[in-house]
Design a protein around this nucleic acid. Sequence first.
RNA 1: GGUUCCGUAGCUCAGUUGGAUAGAGCAACAGCCUUCUAAGCUGUGGGUCGCGCGUUCGAACCGCGCCGGAAUCACCA
Length: 591
Amino acid sequence: MNIEEFLYGVVKSSVESLYGALDGEQLQIQKTRKEFEGDYTLVVFPLLRRSRKSPEATAAEVGEYLVANCSEISGFNVVKGFLNLSLGVGFWAQRFAEIYGDDNFGTAPATGRTIMIEYSSPNTNKPLHLGHIRNNLLGYSVAQILKANGHNIIKVNLVNDRGIHICKSMLAWKLYGNGETPESSGMKGDHLVGKYYVEFDKHYKEQIKELVAQGKSEDEAKKTAPVMLAAQEMLRKWEAKDPEVYALWETMNGWVYDGFDVTYKALGVDFDKVYYESQTYLLGKSLVEEGLAKGIFFRKEDNSVWIDLTADGLDQKLLLRGDGTSVYMTQDLGTAFRRFEDNKLDDMIYVVGNEQNYHFQVLKLILKKLGYDWSDNIYHLSYGMVELPEGKMKSREGTVVDADDLIADMVSTAREMSKELGKLDGCSDEEADAVSTMVGLGALKYFILKVDPKKTMLFDPRESIDFNGNTGPFIQYTHARICSILRKAKDAGIDRSLQCGDILPVETELIKTLCDYPNVVAAAGESFAPSFIANYAYELAKKFNGYYHDYSILREENTAICAMRLRLAESVAKVLKSAMKLLGIDVPDRM
RNA sequence: GGUUCCGUAGCUCAGUUGGAUAGAGCAACAGCCUUCUAAGCUGUGGGUCGCGCGUUCGAACCGCGCCGGAAUCACCA
């Protein structure tokens, strides 16, 4: 049972029997701040109009009534207009018994809602970088959180596998590659293809420089550089399904997918379905026809199709080129329609960077104008950029942080640190690998997920990521220590039968925090923000460490108290593990 | 210029629907390993919550206006 709902009920009936029925007025009940005595607080200011008494007198009156009529409420105190209520030990013991006995604590029953979430969405011309990491972690974590909230989740990836960018890599490989393959070079496939994308740019720039030296203008040079013309020619051949070009395209994309798979696996993310733009880019044209027929869109003299959104404070937007080919918006309209139709979706979430806020604003608006009400159930989970100390990541300036390099870095840093601290003594190589990987990735994932998605965040690769303080490893460490306590208790044969009467005030604080977990999971799902979970896990771990560091659980001589503490420790470990799972972070039993 | 977002301690970030004296971590300083793992614990210092006005019993949070920053407004995706 939800504590706030329970309290709301008893307080409401008390207030109503004192002052008459409330009509629409909200009672404000919140957790009592830690500097005051009590568990939950009723803010009485809104009631003054009805009680016609001072804040203090009103609070005292309600408090007395509650203590007299509600057995769960053991006492109260009044500070200004705040009525602080204390719940009895028995109440907390009962709550704790429920938490301890519930193996699925924090997960909600099935809702029957089906939600599709699209994330990652890479281009196939270069490897993944730090920005993709934020995208992937957010997408995967939000999917986990929504699943815990009882929804059916379909995770999808839309791969941008066609277009001029991949032709650039293909061309450069053909011209300068000497038949190099991932096998022959020992390079990861996505990195190899990315190398030729850079190679293309190098030659392209050289050719521009030459043309400018010959007296051409910068613009003209950009348009007429031979490699650019060749890349465009290649794209035309691809669209015409030229066998040679198509075969090369398939081969090189295959290399990239092999590379991506390794990165995804390392990050621990996965998908239920992968879409490829080469298969979806023609979708949406029928919707454009529909819009034209309804008079929502209009055609210009050059035959291109547009929508005028100036009345909505936006601009005109192109939906179909003059030659009848589609643009980004066309296919996004088509895929959205197809997805809602095919999967009977209730909601669709796009995890896409905030540079596309405008695009999604327009997408939703157009669908709405076409009469599709499910447009309201499209949610753009927009996240901010990851910036470096020297500013934005620029691929041209070589300041991008490569995903694979970063992951490898984090793991090796974790290993060195573990070794220095002597944590790996007596470990097999396999165990050492497993722990270093968990800790290194835990640090990276937590670091990124604890920040509010919509904010631009700063990442300093030189200082790398902390392992101390409010970090993933701190939570992992707390979990590992609890596991260690439980192992030792088992070895010592300590009796763990529950004695509810022995809960101490410090323990009710912990139980209260545990009680919040289902609410935090629900809130995180509602606002698609894993940061709620991360900050909660830190709060819980910190409380546990604070209370239990200074004295020994195992040396407690009162066996009932000892058992109580063990059960509490075990519950904390379970909830921490569960929270970390929602973040996609593995938790070790020892580290 | 239009639209959207951001501005909280030296730095990185929390702050759930408006509530009590503003919260962590890092960095700095002072303590704590014959007690369950010191990746830890305890304490000290550090703030005009960008600025102003308004709404009300009460504003970091809501409204309006400024200032500063970001993204975007492509027949790219």
